[in-house]
Simulated assay, not measured.
Amino acid sequence: MTTNKSKKRAVDCDCDKFILQVSDALEILNGKWKLPIMISLLFGKKRFKEISKEINGITDKMLSKELKELEMNKLITRTVYDTFPPTVEYAITEHGRSLNMVLVPLRNWGIEHRKKIMGR
Rank of each mutant, 00 (worst) to 15 (best):
L20G: 11
N100D: 01
S98Y: 02
T2R: 12
L103S: 03
N73L: 04
D24V: 13
L106F: 15
T93E: 03
I37T: 07
R78M: 12
L35F: 12
R97M: 05
K34F: 15
N100W: 00
F18G: 06
E89H: 09
G31M: 01
E69R: 04
N56E: 08
N56P: 01
Y81T: 08
T83P: 03
A10R: 06
K32S: 12
A10D: 06
K49Q: 05
S64P: 01
D16M: 02
K46L: 00
D14V: 05
Y81I: 11
M62G: 01
T93W: 01
R78L: 15
E27G: 14
D12A: 11
E71V: 11
T2M: 14
G57A: 14
K46Y: 00
C15S: 13
M38H: 01
E54K: 00
K8E: 08
M38Q: 01
K49I: 03
I58F: 15
R9D: 06
P36E: 13
R107G: 11
S23L: 12
N108M: 10
K45H: 05
F43E: 02
T77D: 13
V22R: 10
G96M: 07
I58S: 15
K7F: 05
W33F: 08
T83R: 05
G31C: 02
G57D: 08
E89I: 12
E94N: 07
F18C: 10
M1E: 13
R97P: 01
I117Q: 14
P86V: 12
T79D: 08
T79N: 04
L63T: 07
E66G: 11
M118T: 15
A91W: 00
K116I: 14
S52T: 03
K8S: 06
L35Q: 10
N100R: 01
R97H: 03
N108G: 10
I37Q: 03
L63G: 09
H95C: 09
T77K: 14
A25G: 02
M118F: 15
G44A: 03
M38A: 07
N56Y: 04
K116E: 15
K68L: 15
R97G: 02
L75K: 04
E89Y: 11
R78P: 03
K65T: 13
G96E: 07
E71I: 10
K116R: 13
T77H: 13
A10Y: 09
K61Y: 13
A91G: 06
D16Y: 07
S52D: 09
K61P: 00
I55S: 09
P105H: 09
K65P: 05
R114G: 11
K5R: 09
K115F: 14
K74S: 15
R47P: 00
K116L: 15
T93R: 01
T79H: 04
K46C: 00
